[in-house]
Simulated scan of single mutants.
Amino acid sequence: MTALSYRLLMIHSKLDAEVDYEQKRRFPDLFRLLRLKKLRLVIKDRMAHLASVRQIGMA
Rank of each mutant, 00 (worst) to 15 (best):
D29M: 06
E22H: 05
V19I: 15
M58V: 04
L8I: 02
R26S: 13
R7W: 05
V19S: 03
D16V: 01
L33E: 06
L30V: 12
I43P: 01
L30E: 15
H12R: 14
F31C: 03
L4N: 05
L30W: 06
Y21W: 04
M10V: 11
L36F: 10
G57K: 07
A59W: 09
S5R: 02
D20Q: 11
L34A: 15
S52Q: 12
R32H: 13
G57M: 02
Q55D: 15
Q23R: 15
Q23H: 07
L15C: 03
H49I: 04
K24N: 15
L15F: 08
V42S: 07
L33H: 07
K14I: 09
R7S: 13
A17F: 07
H12A: 14
R32I: 07
L4H: 08
R26V: 10
S52E: 11
F31W: 05
K14A: 15
D16S: 14
R40V: 01
A17R: 12
L4W: 01
L4D: 11
L41Y: 06
K44L: 11
I43A: 04
V53I: 09
Y6Q: 13
K14L: 13
T2K: 05
K24H: 15
G57S: 10
K38N: 12
V42C: 01
R32D: 12
E22D: 09
T2Q: 03
R54W: 00
M47D: 06
Q55W: 02
L41Q: 13
L50C: 03
V42N: 07
M10D: 11
G57A: 13
I56K: 11
E22L: 08
L34I: 05
F31I: 05
I56E: 10
D29V: 10
D29T: 05
K38I: 10
F31G: 01
K44I: 02
Y6R: 10
R40G: 07
A48E: 14
S52I: 02
A48S: 10
L9W: 01
L15P: 02
F31M: 12
K14Y: 10
R7M: 10
L50P: 00
K38H: 08
R25T: 15
V53Y: 01
Q55C: 02
K44V: 03
H12F: 10
